[in-house]
């Protein structure tokens, strides 16, 4: 397994070297964190020399902000293979510390980046063909039987109950959409090889631009292989005002859920103000890719030391 991992990393580096994408390294710890309410960072403390009071620091949940700072500073297209850390995530497809491949392409829209993801995976996964490309709303209509844009909360709730969801007291339509996608579209995705889902609902835009043609959807895509969520990509949001507003909204969600608000990455916001070039970026789970390459069922089988024994 160690050899298989090493050869996978080599192949990835060769792929980007051929395409003149620069490999970079950025800090893993920071005094700020991504406030995304669905992602929980791990926290540690740092003491300055001589000080006894540690200041909170956070392990990166992805290298996104640092890499965008490099892009804003004129790095050109870049990639990175690094470890990312997410609290509260442990299971068949999750290790709290995992390996991400993240890359950014200047002047690419998300469709051009999808082409590149396809090219990479066709090279790395034996027998993998170009992925089918389908819109989120179309899949939702086919498999959940509901129109994403017009379904009422009551309809979503009824459909979710029929699918065996125990509806929580404070239910949000956003959560129902996510879970219905997983429960209704997930089984179909498991029967397919590569599928790229694009035009995510605007509520799940995360750090992507909203579509200029249809503001109900975001220029975000995900790559699934046999149902495994392998990569998540964006036509990146470059508007610093909108970025600050979304961060605020996420911190508000955290507050409502009783979680602590997180310090915003002001360096990143400044970089956006200075100007992030038009670009698209994608993050790909290297451990999951290795699982698919080796045909194993649990992420622990591709790690030298899984979290329980780390």
């Amino acid at each position: 397994m160690l050899q298989k991992r090493a050869s996978l990393l080599n192949e990835i580096r060769r792929f980007f070297a051929h395409r003149d994408v620069l490999e970079v390294e950025t800090p893993v710890v920071s005094s700020s964190a991504n406030p995304d309410a669905a992602i929980d960072p791990m926290q540690s403390g740092f003491r300055l020399p001589g000080s006894h009071r540690p200041e909170p620091i956070y392990l990166q949940t992805s290298p996104e902000f640092s890499m965008k700072r490099l892009l804003a500073a004129g790095s050109g297209s870049i990639f990175q293979i690094c470890h990312a850390f997410r609290n509260g995530e442990c299971g068949r497809l999750h290790n709290p510390e995992f390996t991400l491949l993240e890359w950014y392409r200047i002047d690419y829209d998300h469709f051009q980046l999808m082409d590149e993801v396809d090219a990479l995976l066709m090279q790395l996964l034996p027998g993998c063909a170009a992925a089918q490309r389908l819109r989120y709303a179309d899949l939702f209509l086919i498999h959940a039987g509901l129109n994403l844009f017009t379904a009422t909360d009551a309809q979503l709730q009824e459909r979710a109950e029929a699918a065996g969801v125990v509806i929580p007291e404070s239910v949000q339509s956003e959560w129902l959409v996510e879970i219905l996608f997983e429960l209704c579209v997930g089984p179909w995705l498991q029967q397919q090889q590569g599928v790229i889902v694009y035009d995510f609902p605007a509520a799940q835009a995360s750090l992507s631009q909203l579509s200029a043609l249809d503001p109900r959807v975001a220029e975000r895509f995900e790559y699934f292989f046999e149902g495994v969520e392998l990569a998540n990509g964006f036509h990146e949001l470059t508007d610093s005002g909108e970025q600050r507003r979304r961060f605020g909204a996420e911190n508000l969600k955290r507050q409502r859920a009783g979680d602590e608000q997180l310090p915003l990455d002001e360096h990143f916001l400044q970089a956006l103000e200075h100007g992030l070039p038009d670009c698209s970026g994608v993050a790909l789970g290297v451990d999951r890719l290795l699982m698919l390459r080796c045909g194993v069922e649990h992420i622990r089988e591709v790690l030298a030391f899984p979290f329980e024994r780390a």
């Binding site: 509260g88 995530e89 442990c90 299971g91 068949r92 959560w175 879970i179 799940q204 998540n232």
Partner: peptide, 11 residues
């Protein structure tokens, strides 16, 4: 089974 979309909520 723990299920967690990368950018979504866990269940």
């Amino acid at each position: 089974e723990f299920v967690k979309p990368g950018k979504g909520q866990a269940f």
